[in-house]
Amino acid sequence: MSELYLATPALLHADAFLPVLEQRLAHHQPAALLLRLSGGVAPAAATAMVEAIRPLVQHKGIALMLEDAPELAVQTGCDGVHLSRSYTAASVRDVRRQIGDELQLGVAVGSSRDDAMRAGEEGADYVYFAPDAPDGAEQAQAVQALAQWWCMMMELPAVAFAGTPEQASALAGCDVDFVMPDTSWWDDPAPWAL
Rank of each mutant, 00 (worst) to 15 (best):
L4I: 06
T8D: 15
P9M: 04
P9F: 11
A10Y: 13
A10W: 05
L12V: 07
A14G: 06
A14W: 00
D15S: 08
D15I: 03
A16Y: 01
A16D: 09
A16F: 00
E22V: 05
Q23V: 10
A26N: 08
A26S: 11
P30W: 07
A32G: 07
L37A: 06
A44R: 00
A45I: 02
A46G: 04
M49D: 00
V50S: 02
R54C: 09
P55E: 09
P55Q: 10
K60W: 08
G61N: 09
G61P: 07
I62C: 10
M65K: 02
L66V: 09
E71K: 08
C78L: 07
C78V: 04
D79T: 03
G80A: 09
S84M: 07
R85L: 15
Y87E: 14
V92F: 15
R93K: 15
G100Y: 09
G100N: 00
G100R: 02
G100K: 11
E102F: 12
Q104H: 05
L105A: 02
G110M: 13
S112M: 06
R113M: 07
D115G: 06
D115S: 12
D115R: 14
M117Q: 14
R118F: 05
E121P: 07
E122L: 15
E122G: 12
D125K: 03
F129W: 04
A130Y: 06
D135K: 01
A137H: 02
A137I: 02
Q139T: 04
A142L: 05
V143A: 01
V143R: 00
Q144R: 15
Q144C: 11
A145K: 06
Q148H: 14
Q148I: 01
W150C: 00
M152Y: 11
M153S: 04
F161Y: 13
G163Y: 03
T164M: 09
E166Y: 14
S169Y: 07
D177L: 06
F178I: 01
P181D: 13
D188E: 11
W192P: 04
A193F: 01
L194F: 13
